[in-house]
Amino acid sequence: MEDEKIIELYNARNEFAITETERKFGKMLFAIAMNILSNKEDSEETVNDTYGKAWNSIPPQVPNSLGAWLGRITRNLSITRWRMNKAQKRSGMEIMLSELEECIPSAADTESESESGEITAAINRWLGSLKKEERLLFVRRYWYGDSVADLAKKANILPKKLSSKMFRLRKSLKDSLEKEGISL
């Protein structure tokens, strides 16, 4: 079903909105949660919470891209849940975070920390400057949380080769953030 039609269902307070959302995006949302939480039950609950949030937010909200909008809710809910039960075993989230350490810019000249919005804007600019394949790889790995093994499969390359590409990308992001004077 088209996104507009699903949003119409939400607007009409028709519960098929949730059914259709689950059909179209359920798998993707579960993957996003699972990639952060590495726990099936937690991920299922997070995805259900996402549907509840969508139901309460549309209307009045009118998402431009329903998939990205839902995905962002799942991602945020997953991060919150992950913060709540941090004591757990090493999850996909920890692995991603340890990789992202490499992107943290060295202390910039500016004394104060950059606002989150500024950092996002800088990341957007950096993403826009990338070749499409690089951008797809970065967003799949650090937004959707695809594991390196899965991503290598998708891109049809050896995991080892992908790792070195990801390493170069993280370095490039770090350089770009430093150039923009971003301080975390």
Partner: peptide
């Protein structure tokens, strides 16, 4: 934690990049 802040900033990236990564195939190697 700095990496968590970066992770949160990545969460908010432009929707067009999120959609793109969800729909486009990755052609890295022929």
């Amino acid at each position: 934690m700095k990496n968590e802040k970066l992770f949160d900033a990545i969460t908010e990236i432009d929707e067009k990049y999120i959609d793109e990564a969800n729909t486009e195939k990755i052609h890295v190697k022929k």
